[in-house]
């Protein structure tokens, strides 16, 4: 609707009408109306999305937000509903997952763009996309039925064999090997494709010019990557990081299956814990009244966290585009 060119004055359309001069966005065809209606419908759905949850959560937010944010311990069915363990669990698992995903993901992106021969690039990219397509419940299943036993039977005994194990690790291996650490690992695998997809995009659009210039000065391949590509793409890489972090915060069923579902702030990651999303998923089925409101309030908290991170990521990727436009 923004590109409108008036037809020449003496031309008549095959509908035998005098052509109109349409200007700007004030076109009056039914097509335009249909689009607007659909858009308003979507807007309504989005507002409803935020609004309904907020509405349901309101009583808890206004009266008990302090408890929700700071208290440890969730007493169904009447309260108090302390969300501290969920918040801490979400932050811990997401951050550890992020570290895993960024370290391996950055190496993967660099490999795909600069190291792998061109023929393999497509296969490699497809591989990473397939990783992204796997449903989260399948990751959770794999984590619970394969990784958890492995942790329980192999890793934890090994950790317990260390000198002073009791002092360092305490008593890991509860809940069949489910733990925040396991959840972090599974999450890391799940957000890896997100990070790789964006970082790949960001480092591959660094102009060829710069690559050739650096190599023409005698730089080695790694120097080219480290001194030219990465600094130029730095903002976009941060954008990829924030988006991957956002995704990690929102993961529900995979975490629910492997984190252990214990609503208590733990001393370290080898113990079972929970996250906001997985707690909502597990508790909602049996919840009534006030507890529903409390869970909805947790939902609002999750929404704020996730949306905030998403928006920061968007802003960063937008800034990155501007950097490259100047080059």
């Amino acid at each position: 609707m923004s590109i409108v060119i008036p037809p020449p004055p003496d031309f008549t359309s095959h509908e035998e009408e005098v052509p109109e001069f349409n200007s700007g966005t004030s076109s009056r065809s039914w097509y335009h109306y249909v689009l607007i209606v659909a858009s308003l419908l979507f807007a309504a759905v989005s507002v409803g999305f935020i609004g309904t949850i907020l509405w349901n959560a309101w009583p808890e937010i206004t009266h008990h937000s302090g408890t929700l944010l700071t208290k440890n311990g969730w007493q169904s069915p009447l309260g108090p509903f302390g969300g501290l363990a969920m918040i801490v669990g979400t932050l811990e698992t997401s951050l550890v997952a992020l570290i895993i995903a960024v370290i391996i993901g950055l190496g993967t992106s660099i490999s795909i763009v600069f190291i792998l021969p061109r023929r393999f690039r497509n296969i490699a990219a497809t591989l990473v996309e397939l990783l992204a397509a796997v449903p989260s419940v399948v990751y959770g299943l794999w984590g619970f039925l394969v990784l958890a036993p492995w942790m329980l039977n192999t890793v934890i005994p090994w950790l317990n064999s260390w000198p002073f194990a009791k002092d360092i690790w305490g008593n890991p291996g509860q809940q069949d090997g489910q733990s925040l650490l396991l959840a972090s690992i599974v999450l890391g695998v799940m957000i890896l494709p997100t990070f790789v997809a964006i970082s790949r995009e960001v480092i591959s659009v660094v102009p060829n010019d710069l690559i050739e210039a650096s190599l023409s000065l005698g730089a080695t391949r790694w120097q080219m990557i480290r001194e030219v590509i990465l600094p130029t793409a730095k903002i976009g890489l941060f954008g990829a990081t924030f988006l991957a972090l956002a995704r990690a915060t929102g993961e529900t069923v995979a975490v629910a299956l492997v984190a252990g579902g214990v609503a208590n702030v733990q001393s370290h990651l080898l113990y079972p814990g929970t996250s906001i999303a997985s707690w909502i998923a597990t508790e909602f089925g049996e919840a009534q009244g006030n507890e529903i409101a409390a869970l909805m309030a947790l939902g609002i908290l999750l929404m704020l966290l996730n949306f905030g991170l998403s928006l920061i990521s968007r802003w960063l990727v937008g800034r990155q585009r501007k950097v490259l436009a100047v080059v």
């Binding site: 010019d209 710069l210 050739e212 210039a213 023409s216 130029t232």
Partner: peptide, 21 residues
């Protein structure tokens, strides 16, 4: 190759200074 390129330098068609430097 790296030694060669220190002895034979190149200037390109479009100015391409490193943007972050």
């Amino acid at each position: 190759v790296t030694e060669l390129r220190t002895r034979v330098g190149m200037v390109f068609q479009r100015p391409n200074p490193f943007p972050t430097m």
